[in-house]
Amino acid sequence: MATANATTVVMEARGLVKRYGHVTALDHSDFELRSGEILAVIGDNGAGKSTLIKALSGALAPDEGEIRLDGQVVHFRTPMDARRAGIETVYQDLAVAPALSIAENLFLGRELRRPGVLGSVFRMLDKKKMREDSTSHMRELRIEIGSMAQAVETLSGGQRQGVAVARSAAFARHVVIMDEPTAALGVKQSSMVLDLIRRVRDRGLSVVLISHDMPHVFEIADRIHVARLGKRIAILNPEKISMSDTVALMTGALTPDQVAPDALA
């Protein structure tokens, strides 16, 4: 708790409730994301983690509760609202357009226009600048790709995920939310993406990582948010708790009061 005062909270949610008919997907769930950390969100199927993430990324509006960003209460009605507030989301199903180039994908929906009349009257895109900026974004994250004019479909799964992550990292001002970023990837490509997530954090952004993959979670998370039955039941310190106890908490085989106090973050 000593460090809690030193670290600033970037994003916070209190008492989030979301009901679908008789099903309560979120049941007064809390959430706290600190500046410059990787917070893993884990939970069994139906624990409410994807509903939580959708509420944070603007994909749905909670029935009750409030979300604060930098201490200010925010109401996201669409993903665009969240994005304007500086929160970027990397979706599980690789939200890229495969036939378009890397640069076009990075700037999709946020294209840069040429300066002067060519841009303002003729609406011409500044393709050169977008390619150059793409190159520097990708280089900053050390994603090795030859040409930004190359179509995304020519890339490997890991590289494609790299494009999606780079897009988020390039435009996020506060938070990057990643939904199962390694789910579709092989071992080597997964570790590349994990490195990438660390570099995103090291640039000062806060990362929310939703993952089923416990080894990956333990490899890179600074703290672990455990969701169960629509609530946050614990925040864990991955250095102080075993993977099997974490899974036991997630499934209800252990309760939070049964784990060592110092394992709770």
Binding site: L108, E111, M124
Partner: peptide
């Protein structure tokens, strides 16, 4: 050369990705 034109391609190529961006 224009964003509108590229959006036509994006919408046809992956409508979900286009929507999410």
């Amino acid at each position: 050369e224009t964003a509108a034109g590229r959006h036509v391609y994006a919408v046809g190529n992956n409508p979900e990705a286009a929507r999410l961006t």
